[in-house]
Amino acid sequence: MEIRKINSSVITDTVKKLFMDMNYFIGEDILTALKNAEETEISPTGKSVLAQLIENHKIAAEEEVPICQDTGMAVLFVEYGDKVVIENGSFEEAVQEGIRRAYIDGYLRKSVVTDPVFDRVNTKDNTPAIIYTSIVPGDKIKILAGCKGFGSENMSSIKMLTPSAGIEGVKKFILDTVKYAGPNPCPPVVVGVGIGGTFEKAAMLAKKATLRPIDTKNPNERYAALEEELLTEINKMGFGPAGLGGINTAIGVNIETFPTHIAGMPVAVNICCHAARHKETEI
């Protein structure tokens, strides 16, 4: 395969459009799930909340304004083809410039602060974005991206379970995490679960799981069944839309897994609000 040259401005423009679009236009998977939830919801308040969320998506799309004021911290999973060479700049800087332009030109909220503990001064352009890159064969760049609000991010958790905990331990930790989050993370939520790998791999898998469309299943039958079982259990908790009661506390549970160590079974739960904004593109 030939070397493919890509101008850094192409990366910047693509990232900019990706983040503006995902903030204005909710994905079909989420909108369909909210409409289904509105139909099934038995709590009148819950039903009314869902109707308002659907109306909110309509307004955001029509006026091209953000769905939620928390336009999040930008996270990108990149599959970078090993035949690609970036011209006129670096890949990293081109992505950050795309984020900068999306958040400034797109009227998105700038929510990132420099130092996490001492200064906490806003960077004013929502950079830096968090970029996870893997090198793959080929001459394409694939980007899976999300903008993660922190109302739900703060309700996420990780636990280094050990093998004896078994499937019951996994289920308990996931359900306990959702229960502890209660009404805070803007239910109905999307629950991203990462199981296996190391400490940080499980967390990354959980994040990636929140970016997978909720109308898809884990390709492994046993995990697909677990996704469904957990969704049913979560919806028995009663938190409901906006935490005001009802049978729709979650609209999706996505599980991603990875091989792990003989001594371990890490489980990470990344909770995402109902405004689960994710988008994929290929350059």
């Binding site: 955001a60 006026e63 304004v65 953000p66 769905i67 939620c68 004021q69 928390d70 336009t71 009227y107 998105l108 909220r109 929510s111 109302g151 703060n154 805070n184 993370p185």
Partner: peptide
């Protein structure tokens, strides 16, 4: 409890939903 998004020209305010109270 709110941190609004910037207002587009012609809008009084940007999107402005509630943040977590706890």
């Amino acid at each position: 409890y709110v941190g609004p998004a910037p207002a587009k020209p012609g809008h009084a305010v940007g999107p402005a939903g509630p943040t977590s109270s706890y």
